[in-house]
Design a protein around this nucleic acid. Structure first.
Lengths: 323, 323
DNA sequence: GGTGTGTAGTGAACCGTTTCACTTCACTCT
DNA sequence: AGAGTGAAGTGAAACGGTTCACTACACACC
């Protein structure tokens, strides 16, 4: 509750001088500065962030908008973001999905945004983005001078995975898709199907929802059809996990009966039995890159440079036939 | 960039009237209110949060201070917190460890705090807490009128786990401790040792750090000593996972050679092979309770009611000897 | 002595809201 | 007719900083 006025009074200077001294701006004599700093210390003064932001019209804060904390997916992205923030003089505001929050926050509570929540409509993003409010999107492909899409290189990983399956002689393949609105899902599917087409394969597609349970249910359907594919490619790991659970329940073995591949390389995939083949990317660096570019833009208007985050296929037990 | 003045002008009323109309306070005629709301809509007006907070001296925001996003531990806590926030008219500010951030944030950027980061000194918490700034702590046991400790019932779960091991005839037990500063670690250890003492058992304690690698290293030490215990109790799951990895590498089998129990019930424990016996609590509800109590205090000064979050032992493969 | 230059410091406006204290005016009551 | 009441609306002072434009003064230079 102590204000800069209290500090000024105690140091015997004007408010202006106190402000300059505390911010190390303006020209203030060394002795005076010391006196002000000491007064501030003694009074345990901390400037009111709101008053400051109000006047400066800058919040020195980056907003990150994610769909939820769950799924152990955002974790690493957030850690990457956080690691950069620590070394900057920005603050971090993480905002999980919420209508009201979003509206209010987006209006001037942060200097720039990182969007990773498909629920936010692209039109809203387009409308908000501006020189004074740059946005990095990690979940869609909209682009303009003030919007930077920073996306996974889905095609690369998917092609590697396809080659891996095809190379083992597997020809009867199935694609299990995630949420239709998802950009990543679309790209993964498109790539997989196009690869297949080049090898004259027909690929049935089952529509899932990126959730474990949807993978599980699709697996049951497929198994009951009594027409097992040799391999399934799941658009994310959660569905692969569900798929494997169903297989296990039915006494089927991966990769023997059906080879399974996921996408994302979430930690679980390494620990499951069998371990799950998947496509990974460094989410930590992904997050780092996002903030870095955003801060660079905010500070020097460095133009955005869209590029893809590399992915790589990780062959593990669930899809690797022996010998 | 449009302000309430623009709205007022367009609606042909004073700023005061516009403010009252927008906030549904004061007494404003229905026709006027409509006109103001419409003007605001047309201009796409959103009140500047900083100006508002500055004047109101309330931010309508809850700050959550965690040590990091990693470890898949906070995830569920945050989701619980978030779920309550969604139904309230508060906003959520999640702030991972960072010196500067903390200082600044704590000073008036949030109305109340939830602390789950051992790095924050208890003195700081004590100093900050006040009627106008209540704090819920989830990682330590400081308490006063304005600080609510909301802790796990460590003793309950640990006692159940001890009984489980002891009940299977295991007598040669070892305790693997986590970070010494940790309140939870201390309580888990104290309970385990006291239970043991009641049965006249001596328990060696190894000092770990709550990390997988520390569990791994301790396991190697123990195994090389050639004097295997019948069971180890790890103060958290990460260490249990490391311990099991070391065992596997040495060709040892859990629970046969050594039974292993962890603490936290992180998702991995269910999926590992063998699945890991552990002690769980609903972190989701833990988070929910924390915010609920905080908001209740903020709104009605409802006095804090400390209580423990129940834990339960979950017997899984890693510690269950067959029939 | 007049001009110029640089340093140290100050007054007051401003950022965009909220809200206290007040005015107006129409209406009712006695 | 005069007093009283309540509803609708307004002016201006906050809130706590930052910063523009300015003063005061010492010093150097020619």
């Amino acid at each position: 509750m102590t204000t800069i006025r209290d500090v000024a009074k105690r140091a015997g200077v004007s408010v202006t001088t106190a402000s300059y001294a505390l911010n190390d701006t303006g020209s203030i004599g060394e002795a005076t500065r010391k006196r002000v700093l000491q007064a501030a210390e003694e009074l345990n003064f901390h400037p009111n962030a709101f008053a400051r932001h109000l006047k400066r019209r800058k919040t020195q804060t980056i907003g990150v908008f994610i769909s939820s904390f769950g799924g152990s997916f955002f974790e690493e992205v957030l850690e990457g973001i956080h690691s950069v923030i620590l070394d900057s003089d920005y603050e971090l505001l993480v905002c999980p999905q919420s209508r009201s929050t979003r509206r209010i926050l987006l209006h001037r509570q942060v200097d720039g945004a990182i969007v990773f929540d498909p629920v936010i409509p692209s039109e809203a993003v387009m409308k908000l983005a501006s020189r004074r409010f740059p946005i990095v999107v990690m979940d869609r492909d909209v682009q303009n001078e003030f919007i930077l899409p920073l996306l996974l290189d889905n095609p690369q990983g998917v092609r590697e995975a396809f080659a891996h399956l095809y190379g083992q002689g597997l020809r009867k393949l199935v694609f299990i898709a995630g949420a239709v609105e998802s950009f990543d899902n679309g790209e993964r599917m498109a790539t997989f199907l196009s690869e297949a087409q080049q090898h004259d394969l027909q690929i049935p597609v089952y529509q899932g929802k990126f959730t474990e349970i949807s993978g599980y249910e699709i697996a049951k359907t497929i198994i009951q059809s009594n027409d097992l594919p040799q391999a399934v490619f799941c658009a994310n790991d959660q569905m692969a996990i569900g798929f494997l659970r169903a297989m296990k329940e039915c006494g089927l073995n991966a990769p023997h009966d059906i080879a399974v591949v996921g996408f994302d390389d979430i930690p679980l995939t390494r620990y499951m039995q069998p371990s799950i083949s998947t496509i990974g990317a460094s989410r930590f660096e992904w997050g780092m890159t996002a903030v870095r570019q955003l801060i660079d833009f905010l500070e020097h208007e460095t133009p955005f440079e869209p590029h893809r985050i590399p992915t790589r296929f990780l062959a593990r037990q669930s899809s690797t036939l022996e010998g």
